[in-house]
Design a binder for these strands. Structure first.
Lengths: 252, 252
DNA sequence: ATCTGTATGTGCGCTGGCACACAGATGGCA
DNA sequence: TGCCATCTGTGTGCCAGCGCACATACAGAT
């Protein structure tokens, strides 16, 4: 597999808050108010932003990382509830008023995010301006994703779910490479690693992806979409509806 | 099976908005503002409040009915995403800003609800007062329920899920009887009717429930909780935390 | 160049839930 | 009273996904 420059985010790269689509939707006025309090933080693979029940101290606006919201059961097995990238933020419970959630937030793909202290977030939120409305629309998109995850878990095969999962990840990356072992994917989907091996092997045979030792490259996205269940499309369509992407896409 | 007075809600019964726990949490001031616009409506079994994609015209505050949020797939099979009773409201998309959702809302247990036009709801919501904060906390409870549904669908047996489902329903009823065929439960859980028959038969053998032709009576709630997966307790605990003044008490 | 840990491939038996088919039970209604 | 739609029980065959055990393959370190 070829060297992938973007697999390891360069620390030197120029970051700006507007790489996050929510921040970029804010008016200049609100953004200026927030800017002094937005802190760029590194998001290494596996970092846990919060555990189930933790009181959230920050909200995170990813720029080029991906964060999974994961539920971990008493016996240790897990299931991904939803995934957040540059289109969203981690920590809706802060402004929803609950302060904590029953899930864990863990970095699934390394990168960076801007974080904002819970208090600053609430201050701005409580001004009842555009930030509030934007956050609510995003929350609804998140709800849609969770609902669809429930449906998918009930009705679709591992292969279909893998396709969905790959597509959701792909949409949050700047290229078609992801760093992710089959073992980790299995944890996300809540299935056996061997099941992922089998599904991934099949996708590889069909020329849709190729992978090796934790690096996955999607070579035929169109086919991937065909092989996926309807769940991906439902979530994507609804997210686009709720958060029509601003003209500046944020890429390069 | 004994006659159950509340199985068929009496039209003559006195209803008041504060039977809904969200409405009952509002201050006198806000409630007085809303009262003239709250309209008592009958909620017959099977009534569809809205379909996937519909623009919502009302929010519904159930008093003694139960509403399921159901996702229906392209091939017609379905899965329940969450359930709403007197502790909540149907139509969060209205104030979340999306105006519609990808799921269907359907009455699972007949009764009544107070409805409020979308515009009135938004007007009050936009005053940015207590209603807003209350709605957000409720939304988070709903999110928790959806997340747990996803987990449950992935990891637990039909019997465990049936227990969870019965408990969620029970908490929203005034007695221990529910009117619900195994066929309908199967649609909710997104499983085969035969699977529900088997699980229900087992629960009956263990003396936890007894049922016949669409009437289910829970005779041993404690055991039902023991047989359920952790998902029920997680949702209940979190709901109680988020909406403390209105603990869903369960039945005697 | 070898070692070693991590990642992936494979085989086997098992079980839960599926699809389909049909039999029995029951209650509402003519 | 008897009919009939609806609801529930059961059986058979099938397969996806599981748990377990182990065989490879590869990458990076020494």
């Amino acid at each position: 597999m070829s060297e992938s420059a973007s697999s390891k985010p360069s620390i030197e790269r120029q970051h700006k808050p507007t790489e996050n689509h929510l921040l970029s939707e804010l008016s200049e006025e609100v953004l200026q108010r927030l800017l002094p309090h937005l802190e760029l933080v590194e998001m290494p693979l596996g970092k846990v932003l919060y555990e189930s029940g933790d009181v959230l101290r920050y909200v995170y606006f990813p720029t080029d990382c991906i964060v999974s919201l994961l539920y971990v059961m008493e016996n240790g097995s897990s299931a991904e509830i939803s995934v957040v990238g540059f289109e969203g933020l981690v920590g809706v419970a802060l402004f929803m008023g609950g302060e904590s959630t029953t899930s864990r937030a863990i970095v699934q793909s390394a990168g960076y995010a801007y974080r904002l202290s819970g208090q600053r977030m609430k201050d701005e939120f409580n001004r009842h301006g555009e930030l509030l409305m934007l956050m609510l629309r995003y929350s609804q998109a998140l709800i849609t994703q969770m609902a669809q995850t429930a449906v998918c878990n009930r009705h679709h095969s591992i292969e279909q779910q893998l396709c969905r999962w790959l597509l959701l990840s792909l949409d949050r990356l700047k290229d078609s490479h992801l760093l992710m072992t089959q073992e980790l994917i299995a944890n996300m989907l809540g299935v056996r690693r061997e099941g992922v091996t089998e599904a991934a092997g099949h996708l590889q045979k069909m020329g849709v992806i190729d992978y090796s030792r934790g690096r996955i490259h999607v070579s035929n996205r169109v086919k991937l979409e065909q092989l996926s269940c309807e769940c991906y499309a439902v979530v994507k369509k609804e997210t686009d509806r709720l958060l029509p992407r601003n003209k500046v896409t944020g890429n390069k």
